[in-house]
């Protein structure tokens, strides 16, 4: 659930573009490098992008009586890092803004910041920390993807609260109101997304683990160990 067109007044929509554009440019640079040097990894990139496409089209009902959709960005963030994920996020957000009246062009900067950059960055950091701490790969993937999803909506709430501080409670008062909607609605969805992402990674390990090793996402020893357990 992205911020609607025209729903961020000046200067907020410009500021979020200023935040997002450098990351998107860096992501395009990384993506170009990947495409020219490692053509064999393109299919994996396509799968990561397609995963975002599928998940962000599914509006799921939640306990709160509202619906929202998962983001699907955790998977791309784990495999390709947050900058490349930002570019994939732009593609999905543009599709939804141009054809579905969902999100918007003026709010694209803010929506890329939440769904394409900060959420994926959280996933990336959690993944790196978890793997370093020697926690089970699938457990780490679960937490990384869950938080990529959830943090996205915490950021959306923060963006709206910054733009619309309430008269009584100021920024904090508004933030509480927006978090009550987005962050709570998102909890079951985020857990569901984490579980799905972990399951998809099981299949990637089965059919194309060498690509993950090449991308330095996972070491060959870990792959061997996981295959030993799940085979």
């Amino acid at each position: 659930m992205h911020i609607f067109e025209g729903f961020l007044p000046s200067p907020w929509w410009q500021l979020w573009f200023v935040f997002s554009i450098p990351v998107i440019m860096f992501g395009m640079y990384r993506l170009n490098k990947l495409v020219s040097e490692r053509r064999d990894l393109l299919p994996l990139l396509a799968v990561a992008g397609a995963f975002i496409f599928v998940l962000s089209s599914l509006k799921l009902p939640s306990v709160t009586g509202s619906s929202s959709h998962p983001t699907g960005t955790g998977m791309a963030a784990i495999m390709f890092g947050p900058a490349v994920t930002a570019v994939l996020g732009v593609i999905v957000l543009l599709y939804q803004a141009l054809f579905l009246a969902h999100g918007g062009l003026t709010t694209l900067g803010a929506n890329v910041a939440s769904m394409g950059i900060i959420g994926p960055l959280a996933a990336y950091l959690i993944y790196k920390a978890g793997m370093k701490a020697n926690i089970n790969f699938y457990v780490v993937v679960f937490f990384a993807a869950t938080f990529a999803d959830w943090i996205t909506y915490v950021v959306t709430s923060t963006q709206l609260a910054l733009a619309f501080p309430s008269q009584a409670g100021g920024f904090v008062g508004s933030l509480q109101a927006f978090l009550a909607i987005f962050a709570t609605t998102q909890v079951p969805l985020a857990i569901m997304e984490g579980a799905l992402t972990a399951l998809i990674f099981k299949y990637i390990i089965q059919v194309k683990s060498d690509a993950l090793v090449e991308l330095k996402v996972i070491s060959q020893e870990t792959v061997n160990k996981l295959r030993g357990i799940s085979a």
Partner: peptide, 13 residues
């Protein structure tokens, strides 16, 4: 949609 609910908060604020 949760975004619709957020629109309500914006109107209130």
């Amino acid at each position: 949609g949760a975004d619709g609910a957020a629109e309500g908060v914006i109107t209130d604020v």
